[in-house]
Amino acid sequence: MKTIAISGASGFVGSSLNKFFTELDYEVIPIKRETLDDKTKLESLLNSSDILINLAGANIINRWSESYKKLLYSSRIDTTQKLVSAIKNIENPPQMLISTSAVGIYDNKSTYDEKGNFSNDFLSSLCQDWEKEALKAKSEKTKVSIFRFGIILGEDGGALQKMITPFKLGLGGVIGSGKQAFSFIHIKDLLEAYKFVIENSYEDTFNLTAPKPTTNKGLTLALGKTLKRPTILPLPEFVLNIIFSEGAKVLTDGQSAVPKRLLDLGFEFKYKTIEETIENLCK
């Protein structure tokens, strides 16, 4: 039986991974805050773990005050530094570290695979620094893969749970122009991608997005069609700017990314389009 240690295990993705791999007869060990802050305990835990999945980080969809931006940074970078330091200090480190990043690392000028151009804003810089820290764990004993998440859609949490209520009430609509890219992935495809990479020991950077990115308008139309509700009430960008300040960019300035590396390796997505995804989750 393989052992998987997970930082950030209490979140939507972490709890989904815990359930998924437990049902596959892996032993899953959540890394608690007190363990993360105790060097000896952390090293002991990782010394007996085969795989480490790093998900820790404060919620990106929030108002980005200067203090919250510092929290976004420290919750990702500091945690990753502790994990990497522990890996380097032990005799039997995990065979693989899968660390998280986001497609927000790219600019919004084109559709990109994993070699796309980076932006120069706060979110991209955060992702770049996060990836650099994780890659320091790479050695002869430990492979490192980076998963750049798109917007994760699922029934039990994530972005869809937050946006579906106004649509059910007939109050849903596009955000701003609706033309901004929306790169997404069904939670079930995301879980299968983890399994695929772990079981094949693939070391690379992967876009965790469906093969066919859409736009905010495409998402809105798919929700309206599946829920049989009107989608005529747009949400102006200035309202989001008031609520989220700079953090509104996550919703108003999306990136278009495709999972070229996964597709090249033969991974098969079950939910390739936004229509298939929403129909499955909201039917």
Rank of each mutant, 00 (worst) to 15 (best):
245 S>A: 15
239 V>H: 02
167 F>E: 01
203 E>T: 08
235 L>G: 04
192 E>V: 08
226 T>P: 00
250 V>Y: 11
151 I>D: 04
188 K>H: 07
149 F>W: 05
213 P>V: 10
177 S>V: 09
167 F>A: 04
195 K>T: 12
208 L>A: 14
220 T>P: 00
226 T>H: 06
232 I>M: 07
198 I>N: 08
236 P>F: 05
185 I>H: 02
221 L>M: 06
255 Q>Y: 04
210 A>M: 11
152 I>E: 10
248 A>L: 06
254 G>Q: 04
220 T>W: 00
244 F>Y: 09
229 R>D: 04
257 A>G: 08
149 F>Y: 09
207 N>Q: 15
151 I>W: 03
148 R>H: 05
236 P>H: 03
148 R>S: 02
259 P>M: 06
195 K>Y: 13
211 P>I: 01
152 I>H: 11
151 I>M: 11
229 R>P: 01
201 S>I: 11
245 S>R: 14
161 Q>K: 12
200 N>W: 08
178 G>D: 04
184 F>H: 03
181 A>C: 11
205 T>N: 04
203 E>H: 01
253 D>I: 05
210 A>G: 01
205 T>I: 12
219 L>H: 01
213 P>K: 08
217 K>T: 07
173 G>C: 03
196 F>A: 07
227 L>W: 02
192 E>G: 09
251 L>A: 08
262 L>M: 15
246 E>T: 06
204 D>G: 08
157 G>D: 09
168 K>A: 09
255 Q>W: 07
149 F>C: 03
224 G>C: 12
257 A>N: 09
156 D>H: 15
164 I>D: 03
231 T>Q: 01
215 T>F: 10
211 P>R: 14
151 I>R: 04
151 I>P: 01
256 S>G: 00
180 Q>N: 13
202 Y>Q: 10
230 P>N: 14
171 L>P: 01
189 D>V: 00
208 L>G: 02
152 I>L: 14
192 E>W: 07
253 D>H: 13
177 S>T: 14
242 I>M: 15
204 D>E: 15
162 K>Y: 13
179 K>F: 08
221 L>D: 06
230 P>G: 11
259 P>Q: 03
244 F>H: 01
154 G>F: 06
157 G>N: 03
180 Q>E: 11
201 S>P: 03
223 L>P: 00
234 P>A: 02
184 F>Y: 07
181 A>Q: 05
224 G>R: 10
